[in-house]
Design a protein around this nucleic acid. Structure first.
Lengths: 140, 140
DNA sequence: TGCAATTAAGTTGTGCACAACTCGAAGTGG
DNA sequence: CCACTTCGAGTTGTGCACAACTTAATTGCA
């Protein structure tokens, strides 16, 4: 019979609390831009490639339409992006940055910079941890 | 001027998506027990030490009363635990397992076992990643 | 001792996540 | 050509997270 696992031993809890701690670090910076963390991710995705469909965004961010539809609606209401039905496939909705959304690019790019300034966390450590997580994610 | 970071490069996004992927793996197993992931964490915490206050649970799980109060209420409604005002400090609420909650211990302990059975992820790799995350978390 | 400050839990409101579902559009085989 | 299936987006309902606030109990100090 299995012994009760402790919270301490659980990778899942470590991921869960580290993820929340990270987004908590981002929050004050994103508040200044009027963004939530998932909204920030949507902007990053659109800065990489603008004019993608909801489905394509969902694949990159691993979010379904139940999450993305209302989120994109809020961002459209905030004037950051535009949603238009695709002409060649009326099922799809194309998401494009507005001028206002594009104008945020510089300020958004500044966000990750100051996150670890007052810690002893190194760039190499961050890159290594990220690589390990991506490798792990790809294998489960 | 900072270049726009890509999603790919972001540790935060790696944490965020890995965390969601892990809880998605737990979900079908927890569904069988009628538990959500945070509820499962509360049970683990109580199996470690029963009869703790809401505040103490919140410190271990890093959750505030705004999250825990309704969550514990649902678990109490499900018959898994009991909430009672502390006698020596009427501000505190002590959370204790019911017989039904304690009886789940065996089945809860079985949950992490099968998670990586059909992958090539090793126990050592899991332990190493967890240790790195905990170290990282402690330093930010 | 009295009372202002602090503390613990709970409430309210917003925004994700995600399951389950609806709806209309697009592919598909007979 | 048409029923049938699949597909993309959106809606509904539940349960976290978390900020901001309320309430009641306790603490601390002038």
């Amino acid at each position: 019979m299995a012994v009760s696992p402790t919270l301490e031993q659980q990778l899942c809890f470590a991921l869960y609390s580290a993820s929340r701690a990270m987004t908590a670090r981002y929050r004050p910076l994103l508040d200044e831009l009027g963004l939530t963390y998932p909204q920030y991710l949507v902007l990053l995705a659109l800065y990489e490639r603008d004019g993608r469909t909801v489905k394509e965004l969902g694949e990159e961010l691993r979010l379904d339409s139940g999450t993305l539809s209302p989120l994109l609606k809020r961002m459209a209401a905030a004037g950051l992006l535009r949603r238009t039905r695709s002409a060649d496939d009326e099922r799809s909705v194309v998401v494009e940055l507005t001028d206002e959304g594009a104008a945020l690019r510089g300020r958004v790019a500044e966000v990750p910079g100051g996150l670890f300034r007052d810690t002893d966390v190194t760039v190499a450590e961050i890159a290594d941890l990220r690589a390990r997580l991506q490798d792990f994610l790809a294998r489960i």
